[in-house]
Amino acid sequence: MPDSNALDSTRFAALQQTPLWDFALTFYSRPGVEQACLTLQDDAGVDVCELLFHGWLYVHGLEALPESLEALRQARRDWQTGVTEVLRGLRRDLKHHDAPSETVTALRERIKQAELLAERENLQRWQTWAWDNEQPTARLRNVPVSSQDAGRWLQESVLLPQDAKMEGCGSKTRQALQHAFSVLGQQLDPLRRAR
């Protein structure tokens, strides 16, 4: 009997036809997704690019093998910390600048564009890893058909490696994070491709 979790070549081919950036733009614009992503980013330190990567895989019926993700996850976090978060910090600092001038407003807008480009580059690197044709079965597998709801699945895919962050949260913050994952799951399910 074949392994139902083994990588399905049809799902992999469909994934290769859908750029992660295109998925990210579509998904991020769905109701409640932007706020849910920002809540997870700001309150739990979740890397939104990784979150979007897992969502992209999920809608294609795929998931990354946890053991194969470790090196990539660290490289992507290093990029986020060293590039994206630096730009985000500058942009946010300028937002609270005393009496912003036209020049400060223009500078803030340019930094915002640079931050978006940094996120796009990060997503491109996640995508390249997933699309690599050399042994995709060593990186990806089918999501089990009987998997729990998408929000819970996403929470386990993204937060389990950093579960300690959830443990330190108060009950109100924990509820907000669980609500954010629930919103994301509700928005992912309609996008999930038919199997």
Rank of each mutant, 00 (worst) to 15 (best):
T81Y: 01
Q41W: 01
G45E: 08
L154G: 07
E67T: 13
E63F: 08
G151M: 07
D43I: 10
C37R: 08
N122W: 05
T10I: 04
F53A: 07
V145Y: 07
R139K: 09
T39P: 01
L7R: 13
V46H: 12
F23C: 05
T26F: 00
T10K: 11
S68Q: 07
L62V: 05
F12H: 11
A71E: 14
P100C: 11
G151N: 14
E121W: 06
Q187A: 08
R120M: 03
L117K: 10
T103C: 15
Q16D: 04
D189P: 00
G170K: 13
Q17G: 04
P2S: 12
L159C: 06
L51R: 14
D163S: 10
L107G: 08
V48A: 15
L107T: 12
D149N: 06
D3L: 01
S101G: 02
W153A: 11
G82K: 14
R120F: 15
L72T: 15
Q127D: 03
V143H: 05
N122Q: 15
Y28M: 10
C169V: 04
E115L: 07
N5E: 12
R193F: 00
E67P: 00
T18L: 11
Q35I: 03
V158W: 15
S9I: 03
L51E: 08
T81S: 11
